[in-house]
Design a protein around this nucleic acid. Structure first.
Lengths: 210, 210, 210, 210
DNA sequence: GATGAATGAGTATTCATTCAT
DNA sequence: CATGAATGAATACTCATTCAT
């Protein structure tokens, strides 16, 4: 359904070591990219912050863009994991949705910097890689599609099947905006107010008994 | 309320000429930035595409980032202008809002590339300049605040004054997503479907007679 | 007949200036390449020795290999010019040939280092460029073909038309060997002895009255 | 007379193993150097093509240049061996020479790539090593000196003792040119034509009854 | 003896910006 | 005002070599 996982070649053979080193790289690069942006971060800085030499860095990646991919992928994975962990799939679709929304908004809040990073830098990925990263994003909105469909099935949510996708996208965007419009929102609303109102907006139409 | 207009110093005295040259610069740079991104576009390319030499370019700007600012500002101005032109402030707030939404979504659609450009490159602006550009964005959401307040006043819209700002932001974001999530949306929905559903969502709660 | 002249693009517009700067580059690079070889010479060294910055160097060439091409071409041109200047086309073919050989061997001797440079580094040129450079070499052997044919025409030289090319190549090689086998030759023979014997060898068959 | 054989230190004790491994190295490196040149071939590639790890490679050599030396030396040895095998030292000097020339030209033809390799890359050897490799070359021309002297002794060859060395060098060069001027020669002459004409040229003076 | 992960000096090339003409 | 040649700091990436296991 979604794109295949991208595998970055490494000069190093030991898979355990590769994983360990790449974790170091990701951890170092996330901070750097958040603070300086992708373009203004140097491969040498990444190497140093990762705790090894520039030569070693290039034993585990092939290009600077690989680091960006690694970072984006790790962030997406974390968002997805946190979200899945937080969701309890018991109860009516509507009930699940309400709790999932709360969790999603909270994850967005907690991971602000990282989510913003993806928003701002993903475009620097090579086309092909970008496609994969966007696929990852759809995996997350897919969670909400699932919930919506469950709600439709158990009649707790009233919405046309045709618009499930759009609704899921709306959920994503109304959550992510807490991140990328924080300059406009944070001075006027607390996270809880935000969650409450966005939930109300989203459920407005679909949970109303007509 | 919003930030002061940023003035870019120029070595040239004649204001008419400055304006003319900067228009040339903007026109050239918009295309370049859309196609190659800000970082991968060189000042030489901007100068050439503008129709003059690199030396002349620097008579009208002080740094490459000035060009980005000029571009962002021009795009915002165009969005705002088009929107204002399209809005007819006669009728109930609700009616105005419906028409304004339609216009806004259409402007987003028509100016996709340019809006995306702002989304992706504005972060490269120096902090101070970025603040000003974001102020510009608030000017646009301000239009919707205005309309919402008019609707509240004439009782055609039911919404708490406290949430006017959030609602305006939601409008912005639900429109802009047509641009920055086009990869997810365009294959499933036509612009008109999109407009219809987003309008329904936004009006859902607020136009319902309780 | 021979390949077209390769033109190296330059960011600089003034052709006079391009020529002047490229002469500087060639002069600097010849010495460097002779002493360190092409690979071990740095572009920065070339720039410095040329009397300008690395940035300026790249205003006049596109790659390090361009410098090598410039150098090879200049050397070939000089060999050809010196040879043409030295040859007097009056008299019988045989007489012209004798004098031409003497001149050629002398040019080889005087330009030892430069000729050796071509021998050792030309292979580092991009394929296409190499082809052109080799064409240049044929232009020089072409001079001898011309002389040989003149001698055949006036019956002072006895040789089959079919072997003119090979004979011209032999001349080239028997001259160039003074350069690339100098370690074997210079300790045993003086230039004049060398000239005398090689001339005898070359003329042996063809000037003998049968 | 010629330089002592260069011995490359090895971390490994067993001489049999050293020889075996070095043969692997040579075989791998010859192909690599022919196709990519010495500079563009990496030690990793040599190790991989040799069938072992980079660490192991460095157990048998001390530097990349050692590999080049090994390769040049092996090629020279092969040329010399093939030539010696082909020469039958029975008969008059002149007769031996004629056959030796034929054999030499054929070896050059068969070993074109390898001979060219030496021509193009030997210069990258450290000075001291280069001297040794050139000594190897003199061993080959020494074979022809030997033959020439035999011919002088039995009066089948008429040449001044003083010029034996030059003549031997001429033989070498007129044979090697089949390799390093192949771009000029192969399209005009077959190997047999080449052999015939070069032989005629070389014997011209010296075999003529005066 | 063999391995391969780690190292970091080294390199070609780019590009925003300046300033003399 | 316009030009474009000059500048040089900055940068991604390579690769011969080492050495602990």
């Amino acid at each position: 359904m979604s794109e295949r996982k991208k595998t970055i070649p490494s000069l190093v053979k030991d898979p355990k070591l590769i994983e360990k080193r790449r974790e170091q790289i990701i951890e170092a690069a996330v901070d750097l990219f958040i603070n300086k942006g992708f373009y203004k971060t140097t491969t040498r800085e990444i190497a140093r912050a990762s705790g090894f030499s520039i030569g070693t860095l290039y034993e585990y990646i092939e290009s600077k863009e690989d680091v960006l991919y690694l970072v984006c992928d790790a962030i997406h994975a974390e968002v997805e994991n946190r979200l899945r962990e937080a969701i309890n799939f018991n109860g009516s679709g509507l009930k699940i949705l309400k709790l999932a929304l709360r969790s999603f908004f909270r994850v967005m809040d907690q991971m602000s910097d990282r989510v913003l990073l993806i928003y701002q830098e993903a475009k620097s990925l090579p086309k092909e890689t970008l496609r994969y990263v966007l696929g990852r994003e759809e995996a997350i909105s897919g969670i909400f599609e699932e919930i919506l469909r469950k709600g439709i099935a158990d009649s707790s949510i009233h919405i046309d099947e045709k618009h499930v996708k759009l609704m899921a996208d709306n959920i994503m965007v109304l959550g992510e905006m807490w991140v990328f419009r924080r300059w406009a929102l944070h001075k006027h609303y607390s996270l809880d107010e935000f969650i409450e109102k966005q939930t109300a907006l989203l459920l407005g139409e679909m949970s109303n008994e007509k």
